[in-house]
Amino acid sequence: MKDPFPPPPRDIVRFLEPICARLKLPLLPYHIHELLVALFVYQFIYSYVGPRFSPSLAPKTFPNLQGRSKLDWNIHVVSMTQAMVMSLLAQYVVLFDEERKQMNAQERAYGYTGLSAMALAIANGYFVWHLVMMAIYVRTYGWGMLAHALATNFLMIQGFRPAFLTYGVASYLYEWSNIPLNIHRALGKLKMEKSRFYVFNGVVLFIIFFFSRIIWGTYLTWWFYKDIWSAWTTDPPKGIEKLPTWLLVGHAASATVLQTLNYVWFWLIAKILVSRVVFKKEKKWTGVKDE
């Protein structure tokens, strides 16, 4: 399926082509405008939209937030926006990109569709924004979060090689679980942990997390492993450079770590859900991170 956005100016493409060719990212010049627009939009939301609408949403709480609490709130306004945008966009790609559906193992490893690349560019706009924020506030969030942001950017940008571009888009369906997760965090800031809505949102988080990260995540990871093995053991399509072993290992390791974390986080969510709903214990929800 074609990219619905117009291409970038030809002069920009010509300028970036030799640079991106050396970086082995030949598709990036044709989608760089979408990445930059997304980056600008997310920064605009962080700087202007969130701070201006949050006082209306939480008039008693937001004006009193200071330091990291206020920073977290503004960052998660962007995270919430990104989760909604990417969930809907990824769902549309997975359901309606017929070209993607018909790909074989080689095409899933080396293939490209315009719609998938557009979704990848928009998502990368957020990942770049998040990386910059973690670098600016490294003393607040720690070197671990900065390292995580660097690794995420490096692996996701490889989709413009292209390398497993369609899997990157399919993994954005995990973002469905980040919507109730961000609501949960907002309710915590609003001191609504004892409300019925807090518990209801926790149940919704449990259900969505189960389907998006356990069921879909397990299914996607299994096929990802198979296609990584196929890319390693077979020759690429004629005229295409074989994906390097380090990249295949990196993708396999990242998929393993992420899916393992999904299982761990789901167990923690289930444990706390049982504690709150069955045993009526006032225990806060787990600090699952939005990935």
Rank of each mutant, 00 (worst) to 15 (best):
residue 219 Y to V: 05
residue 191 K to R: 13
residue 234 T to L: 02
residue 201 N to Y: 05
residue 255 A to N: 15
residue 196 R to E: 06
residue 229 W to D: 08
residue 224 F to H: 11
residue 196 R to A: 07
residue 188 G to V: 06
residue 195 S to K: 11
residue 190 L to G: 00
residue 183 I to D: 09
residue 261 L to A: 12
residue 198 Y to R: 02
residue 258 L to I: 11
residue 206 F to T: 08
residue 216 W to I: 02
residue 235 D to M: 12
residue 207 I to N: 03
residue 185 R to K: 15
residue 239 G to M: 01
residue 224 F to P: 01
residue 238 K to W: 06
residue 243 L to V: 08
residue 194 K to W: 04
residue 237 P to T: 03
residue 253 A to N: 02
residue 238 K to D: 15
residue 265 W to S: 05
residue 244 P to N: 03
residue 267 W to D: 01
residue 216 W to M: 01
residue 253 A to P: 00
residue 201 N to Q: 08
residue 210 F to R: 01
residue 231 A to Y: 13
residue 261 L to N: 14
residue 192 M to S: 09
residue 227 D to Q: 13
residue 232 W to N: 10
residue 190 L to R: 04
residue 227 D to N: 14
residue 220 L to E: 11
residue 225 Y to G: 00
residue 221 T to H: 15
residue 222 W to Y: 15
residue 182 N to V: 06
residue 260 T to Y: 15
residue 255 A to D: 07
residue 227 D to Y: 12
residue 213 R to C: 09
residue 236 P to D: 09
residue 233 T to E: 09
residue 234 T to D: 04
residue 233 T to D: 08
residue 196 R to G: 14
residue 263 Y to C: 15
residue 233 T to R: 09
residue 268 L to I: 00
residue 263 Y to I: 12
residue 210 F to K: 01
residue 205 L to K: 06
residue 189 K to E: 05
residue 182 N to L: 05
residue 222 W to S: 14
residue 235 D to E: 15
residue 228 I to R: 03
residue 227 D to T: 13
residue 243 L to H: 03
residue 261 L to I: 13
residue 236 P to V: 11
residue 240 I to E: 12
residue 191 K to S: 09
residue 198 Y to W: 06
residue 203 V to S: 04
